[in-house]
């Protein structure tokens, strides 16, 4: 596989072009990686593929081996692992709030205390997510950083 890098004149012109004979697994992976680095996330509902704007996602949740992205209306299955999502979107106001959930801070409506130094985050759709004691400190730190 050859790799060509060309300099773009402006950030608006930046793009990744994939030239392939057919979409193999490798190319699919590259495509998903590129899309993940942008403002959309590739999600699946059954066999259908969707591009979900990052700003629409309330939180990501790991259930067993599977990771799901929750928007106000739908639940999408995601191919990435939760720790990958946490790393990829940490600069987009996504932060881990428990072992199984990465939450979009901008989609939190308010916080309220729970027992034992834990908190509940009320999301914009009315759902409440538990912030565990272990991750509450990180959330406070992130909030302080702005």
């Amino acid at each position: 596989m050859r790799l060509t890098i060309r300099k773009a004149a402006s950030p608006e012109e930046e793009q990744v072009i994939l030239e392939c004979v057919e979409m193999t697994k490798d190319f699919e992976d590259i495509k998903e990686y590129v899309l993940m680095k942008g403002n959309v996330v590739v999600g699946y509902i059954e066999e259908r593929v969707y591009q979900i704007p990052l700003s629409d996602i309330l939180y990501f949740e790991a259930v067993g081996e599977q990771v799901f992205a929750y928007t106000a209306d739908d639940i999408y299955s995601i191919k990435n692992r939760l720790y990958e999502i946490e790393e990829l979107y940490s600069d987009r106001k996504f932060i881990r709030c428990s072992k199984s959930v990465v939450v979009n801070i901008l989609k939190i409506e308010s916080f309220r205390p729970a027992l034992d130094s834990r908190f509940y985050a009320k999301m914009k759709n009315g759902e409440e997510i538990l912030i565990s004691r272990m991750y509450a400190k990180n959330i406070k730190k992130k909030l302080m950083e702005g």
């Binding site: 939190i108 308010s110 916080f111 908190f119 909030l143 702005g146």
Partner: peptide, 8 residues
């Protein structure tokens, strides 16, 4: 935390 959230 709610105050900081509002600022963000």
């Amino acid at each position: 935390m709610n105050r900081m959230l509002a600022e963000i």
